[in-house]
Amino acid sequence: MQRLLRAPTWAIGLLAGAPFGIMIAITIKVSGDTMPAALIGGGAAGLLMGVALAFGTRTPRRDLRQALAPLPVADWKAARTAAWRGPVPTRTDIRATALDLVDLRLRNLRRARPWMTVVFGLNLAIAVLNIVVGNRFGVLLAVLWTAGLIEQWHSPRRFRRRRQLLATD
């Protein structure tokens, strides 16, 4: 994780886009299209995915680096772990950084939660319609989208409890 946070944007794009493009190319080829069509389609999809993820993760990666900046790189993992689970660290610098990470996560959730709830809710409705039509695959999708909705409602509570635990002496 430390390497990904400090990696250049082009490397993130390559790491995300290449496997995605390869999977799309294989899918296109298996579906019966020609090899040039698979290569062009996979390359285009990989390029789009890589560019989207590279530039879409710049701000979150920057925010994480800023929150972790007070600590040496060797302690980043301890702070990230403390922000999510486990015992409260005894070192005050790790505890303070973990608290900053929890606050950052809560801010990000507050901003994204309404949109994610709408997206998950609409996809759940589509999955239910697929079940009604007779598509058995819709059951799996409905379960996954329901789990996503439950996580959207549960995450802020979990992070507020973790924040409270980290803030107490």
Score class of each variant (00 low, 15 high):
147 A>R: 04
36 P>E: 07
66 Q>T: 12
70 P>S: 10
18 A>T: 15
110 R>T: 13
69 A>L: 05
53 L>H: 06
8 P>Y: 05
2 Q>K: 11
95 R>M: 07
61 R>G: 06
89 P>G: 09
66 Q>A: 14
130 N>H: 13
13 G>I: 05
11 A>N: 00
169 D>S: 11
31 S>N: 06
17 G>S: 10
104 L>C: 08
63 D>T: 07
28 I>C: 03
4 L>I: 12
63 D>V: 04
116 M>P: 00
87 P>I: 10
66 Q>Y: 01
129 L>A: 15
140 L>D: 08
167 A>L: 10
122 L>R: 01
44 A>Y: 03
140 L>E: 07
23 M>S: 12
155 S>G: 09
153 W>D: 02
28 I>M: 02
108 N>Y: 11
161 R>T: 06
49 M>H: 11
24 I>T: 13
87 P>H: 11
3 R>F: 12
161 R>A: 13
119 V>K: 03
75 D>Y: 01
166 L>G: 01
49 M>W: 13
6 R>F: 07
81 T>D: 15
48 L>T: 12
105 R>M: 12
38 A>C: 07
143 V>W: 03
102 V>H: 03
15 L>K: 03
92 T>I: 15
90 T>N: 11
103 D>Y: 07
26 I>P: 02
136 R>M: 12
73 V>W: 05
139 V>N: 02
127 A>W: 01
98 A>V: 07
139 V>K: 03
91 R>C: 04
120 F>V: 00
29 K>H: 15
71 L>E: 03
154 H>A: 15
105 R>G: 11
106 L>D: 02
101 L>N: 05
49 M>T: 14
53 L>R: 02
79 A>G: 06
31 S>C: 05
30 V>W: 08
107 R>Y: 06
92 T>N: 13
45 A>N: 08
105 R>Y: 05
75 D>F: 00
124 L>E: 00
18 A>N: 04
101 L>K: 07
162 R>A: 02
148 G>T: 01
80 R>K: 09
142 A>G: 11
32 G>I: 01
6 R>V: 05
100 D>Y: 00
49 M>Y: 12
115 W>Q: 07
3 R>A: 14
59 T>K: 15
114 P>H: 02
11 A>E: 10
31 S>L: 07
115 W>V: 11
51 V>R: 00
102 V>F: 06
165 L>M: 13
15 L>M: 11
122 L>Y: 02
88 V>M: 03
97 T>G: 06
110 R>C: 09
144 L>Y: 10
1 M>F: 08
133 V>Y: 09
65 R>W: 02
146 T>V: 06
40 I>S: 08
89 P>Y: 07
73 V>L: 12
158 R>I: 09
25 A>I: 02
98 A>S: 09
40 I>F: 13
61 R>Q: 08
34 T>E: 11
15 L>P: 00
135 N>T: 12
140 L>K: 03
87 P>A: 15
22 I>Q: 01
67 A>S: 10
63 D>L: 14
1 M>I: 11
45 A>H: 08
89 P>R: 09
96 A>Y: 03
